[in-house]
């Protein structure tokens, strides 16, 4: 009897939590996505696939493509920055490595909006970067660095970079150096060592990083709002608008469900290639 009570102390909270605060809200969103939107902004409780059909409206297809493009570009830039960086750090001694990896995290202990504001100050027409370039006579007219796609990608890369650096670094730092030595002893050049040895070993970590960069990049509406000047929309803005201005919850819910499906497909691939779920949270 007593053991039973103890047992329920340990398992009841997690069951309640995951059913009430995770499953229930998402199931409810799923249900809403089949409701109909009335012209007053309320919901009619019926069953319709209309919301999913209207995703294929040309306007929304455009927004989808744009979000995917921004997310993919962000992901690739993060990879291109993180790989050399993680490799370079792993060449240092233990003490330096630890200092560097802590330093990587420092900007991210401040608020993400504050950092975005920092970028606004840097990127705008008479911002710091343009002023420096102008005064050095490198450019004649100020560059358009923000209020366009470029600004958004800079903001996304900046915000999401650590999610790529951390898994890559922890994977690279566990590579046995004798392996790399063996590879170069066998006459492999650096590029070959990278593609044949390092890349396969770090692939799950790379995918982990890619996942943790790609899916948030679809949803970060505030980066797009602040650096895109309100004229560019990604999926996150679309969902936000449906819920907070256009008041078409069913349609917003349908897009959210689509995002869940996309995420889930990526997770399945991640598991297929041997990634561990717990690594995603660390």
């Amino acid at each position: 009897m007593k053991n039973k009570i103890i047992r329920s102390i340990f398992i009841v909270p997690v069951i309640l939590y995951s059913l009430l605060l995770i499953a229930l809200p998402i199931i409810y969103v799923l249900i809403i996505s089949f409701y109909k939107n009335d012209s007053y902004g309320g919901m009619i409780r019926t069953f319709t696939l209309e919301n999913y059909m209207s995703i294929f409206n040309s306007v929304y297809i455009g927004i989808f493509l744009k979000s995917f493009l921004i997310a993919v570009i962000t992901m690739f830039i993060c990879m291109i920055i993180s790989y050399p960086f993680a490799l370079a750090v792993s060449h240092k001694n233990a003490k330096t490595q630890s200092i560097f990896m802590t330093l990587v995290m420092v900007p991210f202990l401040t608020n993400s909006l504050i950092r975005m504001y920092g970028w606004i100050v840097l990127l705008r027409k008479n911002g710091v970067i343009n002023q420096v370039l102008l005064s050095l006579n490198i450019i004649k007219n100020p560059l358009n660095l923000m209020y366009n796609n470029l600004g958004i990608v800079i903001g996304m890369v900046y915000t999401l970079l650590p999610f790529m650096i951390l898994p890559l670094y922890s994977s690279i730092s566990t590579i046995d150096y004798r392996l790399l030595e063996a590879s170069s002893d066998l006459g492999a050049n650096k590029w070959k060592t990278f593609t044949k040895v390092i890349l396969p070993i770090t692939f799950p970590a790379l995918f982990n990083g890619g996942l943790m960069v790609f899916t948030p990049a679809l949803g970060f509406f505030f980066i797009v709002d602040l650096l895109g000047g309100g004229k560019i929309m990604i999926l996150g803005n679309l969902i936000k608008n449906q819920f907070l201005t256009a008041r078409n919850w069913p349609f917003g819910a349908a897009i959210a469900i689509l995002l869940i499906i996309i995420t889930y497909i990526l997770i399945m691939i991640y598991r297929k290639i041997g990634g561990k779920m717990d690594d995603l949270g660390a």
């Binding site: 902004g41 309320g42 819920f243 907070l244 201005t245 256009a246 008041r247």
Partner: peptide
């Protein structure tokens, strides 16, 4: 105004 309407009704 649309945002206001949404906020009040939700």
């Amino acid at each position: 105004n649309e945002e206001l309407l949404a906020k009040i009704s939700s």
